[in-house]
């Protein structure tokens, strides 16, 4: 009656997506706060990846883009 398989897929995907975004954004905050060397560009790279994930979310929301 209840579709446990699709529930677990949803559960797993939610964990990976949410934790991925939070991981990237946190890493970005941590790296970008140091102004020296490679850290700042790397931090900005993390933010850019985060932005891409959010754009993917927008893509998922808007049906006419599919």
């Amino acid at each position: 009656m209840i579709d446990w398989f699709s529930f677990f897929v949803v559960f797993a995907v939610s964990i990976v997506a949410a934790c991925g975004v939070v991981f990237l954004f946190s890493l970005g905050l941590r790296l970008a706060s140091v102004r020296t060397g490679w850290r700042r560009p790397a931090g900005i790279g993390c933010f850019v990846l985060c932005g891409l994930l959010i754009l993917y979310g927008v893509y998922l929301i808007i049906p006419s883009l599919h």
Partner: peptide, 10 residues
Amino acid sequence: AATTATILAS
């Protein structure tokens, strides 16, 4: 982030 991910996944 958790809300967004869970809603979009579901």
